[in-house]
């Protein structure tokens, strides 16, 4: 909201930022090969393959966990990984994909920085008979055959799960405040739509206020502060935030208004980052729906099948949990991001 005038233009760029909306600029790094271990250590003896992965960048904790999962899985299974960090620039990603083609990798995977402009380079990959896996973000193209498979989160399902959890928790009765993500971004649109679907069956669940918190803590706090000074906000019994960071900011605003987060207002958010688990532990957050960054295993599952010549599904959604006070303790210590 502080963002004025010019920022509407940049919103489209932020559009696809899934679980964390931010960018940095830095010079493009060269394509590097992660050290490969000879022979699979313990997993099933799959054929050794070379996978080229073009990552978006390192803009958030979520993205870092995503990168580490892919690197760790390559090492574990003894595959060779050629990893490139595009530093949020499409031209870097296109360059990386071209270099993967030139090196003749077995499979290319990438997390597209933006939705459009991939047709030319993906046609080159197709001509070279290299299968392409999209990781955690989709692309806009007329020709769906340009990529082989997509693996990632189902944002709409995340919203549905948040809605279902809240319906159960409140017995289908709640006045809900909603903190939306960056307007126009896929996770914000889908998480909003999914949640609305889930609560549509409950006539006594209503969203009474909805504004954007831009996926950040500071804006989550500021918007919540304003909400709590409206008639609707004062009567609200629940908060749905499109990501954990906004919920964490909102918790502070609820406390400042003299209410108890987690008790006076039931809070559910999406992502499942470490700080959210800590908030559940403190009893201030009630539930977080996971947006899983650990895509290494499903990506290499797909890659192994592709190299073996098997058919793979066009869309693979990653396994994602719903964590509340009953089960957060199972994972809080393993959570790295």
């Amino acid at each position: 909201m502080r963002k004025m005038l010019l920022t509407t233009m940049t919103v489209s760029l932020v559009g696809l930022w899934a679980c964390a909306p931010a960018t940095t600029d830095a010079p493009p790094p060269p394509v590097v090969s992660a050290p490969a271990i000879d022979g699979p250590a313990d997993s099933a003896p799959a054929q050794k393959l070379t996978l080229g992965f073009a990552q978006v960048g390192a803009e958030s904790d979520w993205r870092k966990a995503n990168t580490e999962s892919i690197k760790a899985e390559a090492e574990k299974r003894g595959h060779e990984l050629k990893f490139s960090d595009a530093q949020q620039k499409q031209e870097n990603q296109i360059k990386a994909i071209r270099s993967f083609i030139a090196q003749g990798v077995d499979v290319i995977a990438f997390a597209p920085v933006v939705e459009t402009g991939w047709d030319a380079v993906l046609a080159e990959a197709k001509a070279a008979n290299i299968p392409v896996i999209l990781s955690d973000r989709t692309i806009n193209t007329q020709d769906e055959t340009l990529y082989t498979a997509f693996v990632g989160s189902d944002f709409r399902e995340e919203g549905r799960r948040a809605g279902k959890w809240l319906a159960e928790k409140t017995n289908g009765e709640a006045s809900i405040l909603e903190l939306q993500g960056t307007p126009g971004s896929a996770p914000a649109n889908e998480r909003k739509a999914g949640f609305a679907e889930a609560i549509a069956d409950f006539p006594n669940m209503k969203i009474v206020k909805s504004q954007t918190g831009e996926f950040t803590r500071a804006m989550g706090k500021e918007v919540m502060e304003a909400f709590l000074k409206t008639p609707e906000g004062q009567g609200a019994t629940a908060l749905y935030a499109h990501n954990d960071d906004m919920a964490i900011g909102a918790i502070q605003a609820i406390e400042a208004a003299g209410k108890k987060p987690g008790q006076d207002i039931v809070i559910v958010s999406v992502d499942g980052v470490k700080d959210a688990f800590l908030a559940i532990q403190e009893g201030k957050l009630n539930c977080t729906v996971e947006c899983n960054p650990l895509l290494g295993p499903p990506i290499f599952d797909l890659a192994e099948k592709l190299v073996a010549g098997e058919q793979v599904p066009k869309i693979t959604y990653s396994e994602e949990g719903v964590f509340d006070e009953n089960n957060y303790a199972d994972v809080i210590n393993d959570r790295k991001y």
Binding site: P21, A22, R217, A218, K221, I248
Partner: peptide, 24 residues
């Protein structure tokens, strides 16, 4: 003040576009 307010340093978002608001 920004960091103290949210009890966190958010390098990606702290002060993002605020130079424009200040000029305005």
């Amino acid at each position: 003040i920004n960091a103290a307010n949210i009890a966190a340093a958010d390098a990606n978002n702290a002060g993002l576009y605020l130079e424009l608001d200040a000029i305005l």
